[in-house]
Design a protein around this nucleic acid. Sequence first.
DNA 1: TTGACATATGAACAATTGTTCATATGTTTG
DNA 2: CAAACATATGAACAATTGTTCATATGTCAA
Lengths: 114, 114
Amino acid sequence: MDVCQEKILHHESVQKALNNIPDMDALHSITGIFKALSDPNRLKIVFALAKCELCVCDLAAVCGSSDSAVSHQLRILRNLKIVRYRREGKVVFYRLDDHHVSTLINQTLEHVKE
Amino acid sequence: MDVCQEKILHHESVQKALNNIPDMDALHSITGIFKALSDPNRLKIVFALAKCELCVCDLAAVCGSSDSAVSHQLRILRNLKIVRYRREGKVVFYRLDDHHVSTLINQTLEHVKE
DNA sequence: TTGACATATGAACAATTGTTCATATGTTTG
DNA sequence: CAAACATATGAACAATTGTTCATATGTCAA
């Protein structure tokens, strides 16, 4: 009812805005990244891995949560190509997939500090 | 049980990682920003406002959702200092509070494109 | 003041999320 | 091969989230 087009107050601006909005696919890719970084434990994982390579139970110690919980979180980060891993015997080492993400969180740190 | 300290495999790395993790307050400030940007409609709002100032019902048209829903979302963005507003008569115009956020989403766009 | 309009907000409900627990997979060592 | 260990995963449950609906606030014009 109030989604009705007749109600738009500033047509040209709305049109300009609409042109600037990425398509649904891109939109969901971006929200995926942000959602991944919106959980304190996952963010801890990323901050930790920004410093050095760590295995699952190291990360569990860092986060103060269980191996299982961390493993679930790591899968999410893996699927989004935020982290990659390398197996060495029984141990699986995780690290950041690229430096984009550290840049991202550092930039957000700046925003927050003000 | 598996949070036990004895299980840590790489003590020095864990220590180094722990030193790199911001305190809880900073951590929650950052996750707050990311959480805000992790909703498709809020992200649309931010992309829209990156282009020009818009009122609530313009934004509703852009997002394809109700005025009320948009207003609720705008409060979240307002509380996080992501957007600011200006009243002109009956109409309230929103715009981005600073350019940090547009930088942030554009950077994420880059990450996603690869 | 009254009515119309733009926006804001509280309550409630459905959908999503993160954890735990149990169990499975994969790897090394005896 | 079996046992021990590191990690992964599915199901289920509690907590959080985004929307809708009803109503409230604030502003303008008559």
